[in-house]
């Protein structure tokens, strides 16, 4: 039976505001490349509470020199997660030159 091979990513790349941190947190992250050279990231979140939680998330992208890569479609995205639910959020880097990222979460 085929199983997905996850290329796990260090969770130190995640920043969460203290309020949301008590309710929703990142249980795992993995990355891959799509279209040959475009970095794709997936973060798996879990709602630890018994109620629906709204939150915002944003990905910051960085080039090999650590400079921020702007994206015309990036920015904060509204989202929500049901009680006790596991939910994946994904994003694709804006350019092939992007080598690193940061995930920001806030309530």
């Amino acid at each position: 039976m085929p199983q997905a091979l996850k290329n796990s990513v260090d969770l130190a790349r995640v920043t969460t505001d203290p309020s949301l941190k008590r309710k929703v947190y990142v249980v795992g992250m993995n990355e891959s490349y799509v279209s040959g050279n475009m970095l794709k990231v997936q973060a798996e979140l879990q709602n630890k509470t018994n109620s629906y939680q709204e939150f915002y998330y944003a990905f910051d992208w960085f080039d090999v020199d650590g400079m921020l890569v702007s994206s015309p479609t990036g920015g904060w995205r509204p989202s929500g997660i049901q009680a006790r639910e596991l939910k994946a959020i994904t994003a694709v880097a804006p350019t092939p030159k992007t080598v690193d990222f940061r995930l920001k979460l806030k309530e």
Partner: peptide, 28 residues
């Protein structure tokens, strides 16, 4: 996240969300 949310009309945030998801889908 500080832009105004209007439930009864389309807003700039809706276009950002849709375009971002479409580009991610197309590239992937």
């Amino acid at each position: 996240p500080d832009t105004l949310v209007a439930g009864n009309q389309i807003t700039i945030t809706d276009f950002y969300i849709a375009s971002d998801e479409m580009v991610n889908s197309m590239v992937s």
